[in-house]
Amino acid sequence: MRIEFARFSLDDTDLLVDFLTRQEWPFHAGTQDPEVVRSRAADGLYDNEETRTFWVLADGERVGLIKLLDLADETPMFDLRIGQEWRGRGLGAKAVAWLTGYLFTEMPHINRIEGNTRQDNHVMRAVFRKSGYAKESHYREAWPDRDGKLHDSVGYAILRRDWLSGTVTPPDWHDD
């Protein structure tokens, strides 16, 4: 399978609406209202000075979406979505490897990259670990789902120096 990444453009809005609203995203909050997605795209919320969005393409088919956020900061964040029928094929790890290299290569001011997921999203947590990200935070009952149930949120990050050296530097959890 050939994996590529293509930057989102406003011409892709209908494809974006379809991708985000026609399937379940069990670990993502937010709306699945097509008009809200369309309005956000028109307002530049998927591509502006601080945000870039990329399609994950598998053999030319749009199978995932990467949204890079806070690009003016030294610590950007990202949102990753892999389409339901493509999950479990290693695309998440390939996407995180790509976005990590992209950010550290294209943006020299960036020192670290951060991502968060729900505690019960074991697949994404494994992707973070496989990709060289260290667990840095654990926030209890901080992530509400669509039904209002609260889940723990877990944060991971990678430092530029760790990416360059291929190591993982965990935080000092016993600094009290």
Results as ranks from 00 to 15, higher is better:
136 E>Q: 13
90 G>N: 06
86 W>G: 00
103 L>T: 06
55 W>R: 00
68 L>D: 00
70 D>S: 09
94 K>H: 13
105 T>K: 12
103 L>Q: 09
67 K>G: 00
101 G>H: 07
175 D>C: 11
53 T>N: 05
85 E>A: 14
18 D>I: 01
104 F>N: 07
34 P>G: 09
119 Q>W: 14
6 A>D: 11
54 F>N: 00
125 R>M: 09
91 L>I: 08
148 G>T: 06
60 G>C: 04
94 K>R: 15
14 D>L: 10
148 G>E: 06
55 W>I: 00
38 R>A: 10
112 R>Y: 02
11 D>G: 15
28 H>I: 09
133 Y>K: 02
89 R>G: 07
68 L>A: 10
147 D>I: 04
8 F>A: 10
103 L>M: 12
42 A>K: 10
5 F>S: 05
134 A>Q: 06
59 D>Q: 08
28 H>V: 12
112 R>P: 01
133 Y>A: 05
115 G>D: 00
44 G>W: 11
43 D>E: 12
5 F>N: 04
11 D>S: 14
91 L>P: 12
19 F>M: 06
155 G>Q: 00
133 Y>M: 05
113 I>E: 09
104 F>P: 11
114 E>W: 14
75 T>A: 11
93 A>S: 14
74 E>H: 12
133 Y>G: 03
46 Y>A: 10
93 A>Y: 04
37 V>K: 03
111 N>G: 15
103 L>Y: 02
169 T>H: 07
118 R>K: 13
14 D>R: 07
49 E>F: 11
22 R>K: 12
123 V>R: 12
143 W>C: 07
63 V>R: 04
32 Q>K: 13
162 D>A: 05
69 L>A: 04
11 D>F: 08
79 D>N: 13
107 M>R: 15
24 E>K: 14
15 L>C: 11
109 H>C: 08
118 R>P: 07
95 A>N: 08
106 E>M: 07
45 L>Q: 15
80 L>T: 05
137 S>A: 15
59 D>P: 01
1 M>H: 07
70 D>M: 01
110 I>E: 01
167 T>H: 10
